[in-house]
């Protein structure tokens, strides 16, 4: 398993983006993220980029940008020394990347909450029209025969309690169950049986092209598992609720995230394999 980055995505309406005041407050907000992220990601300035348009600005130059220029801009990235951008604004989507690099899980959770707090405050003071915010992270681990069964036993059980919709999908199979976690997790036994049969068949017919996909959905929080290739499985969490998301992070990744390592490590996810 490799926890890379927690992505925090916000979608705006494009009409808002072209307003002068909105753009300025957005730029001011973006400069704030040098404090939230790791101390070494000092943002020197912003690169504004658009159709036949390119400009680098400092914090003091935000007010110099005219309305004509704002209409052209569709991408804002920070000027930082390292290769990794802590955020990217692209057309209508602001993506803040909270890297797990040299952070432990507590730091990661605190940073998530900080980002959420800053954004809520900013949204309340600016009133953008339509807004969708979403947290997401993607894990990957090697494929073993009992992956999907382990998923029910370990991953599903550890999700925050509540009613969930369980969707199971393969190339030619599509089914939906309603379950309550953690009380009615036993319902999933049916599904385990299904996969047992499928894996036995796979051994016989060598039909490797079947792709498996499971979703667990609670309101707008989702947990998705999918076979990526013959050797790898991907596990993704999406949520618009920081508490749900942090709870998932704590239950699934705790203690496995190494502290202060210089490289992002590849380790296995014990609860799954």
């Amino acid at each position: 398993m490799n926890l890379n980055t927690v992505f925090y995505k916000i979608f705006f309406s494009a009409i808002d983006r072209k307003k002068k005041n909105f753009f300025r407050s957005l730029c001011n907000l973006l400069f704030c993220f040098s404090d939230i992220n790791e101390p070494h990601t000092k943002i020197k300035g912003l690169t504004l980029n658009g159709f036949h348009y390119y400009r680098n600005i400092h914090h003091s130059q935000i007010n110099e940008i005219s309305e004509k220029e704002i209409a052209k801009i569709d991408r804002i990235t920070p000027i930082v020394d390292m290769d990794f951008f802590p955020f990217i604004f692209d057309r209508d989507c602001l993506e803040i990347r909270n890297s797990s690099h040299s952070k432990n899980i507590e730091d990661l959770i605190v940073t998530n909450e900080n980002i959420d707090y800053k954004l809520k405050k900013w949204i309340n003071s600016n009133h953008p029209k339509k807004i969708i915010k979403n947290l997401e992270t993607h894990l990957r681990y090697p494929f073993v025969k009992s992956c999907f069964i382990d998923f029910n036993k370990n991953t599903a059980k550890k999700l925050p309690p509540g009613p969930y919709i369980y969707k199971l999908k393969t190339n030619n199979y599509d089914k939906k169950y309603e379950i309550e976690i953690p009380e009615y997790i036993d319902k999933l036994k049916n599904i385990e049986a299904f996969f047992d049969i499928k894996f036995l068949q796979r051994g016989k017919t060598n039909n490797n092209k079947d792709i498996y996909n499971i979703k667990l959905i609670n309101k707008k929080s989702k947990c998705i598992i999918k076979q990526l290739s013959e050797d790898f499985i991907g596990l993704s969490f999406y949520s618009n609720d920081v508490k749900w998301f942090n709870c998932v992070l704590q239950n699934h990744i705790d203690k496995q995230l190494p502290k202060h390592s210089s490289k992002i490590p590849y380790t296995s996810l014990p609860c799954l394999s």
């Binding site: 995505k9 991408r75 692209d90 057309r91 989507c93 997401e136 999908k169 393969t170 190339n171 792709i211 498996y212 996909n213 989702k222 998705i224 999918k226 991907g234 993704s236 999406y238």
Partner: peptide, 16 residues
């Protein structure tokens, strides 16, 4: 840039 914006922004890329 087009690939980045359009391929990666939605979770339905995780559909079967």
């Amino acid at each position: 840039r087009y690939l980045q914006v359009n391929m990666c922004s939605d979770e339905n890329t995780y559909d079967v």
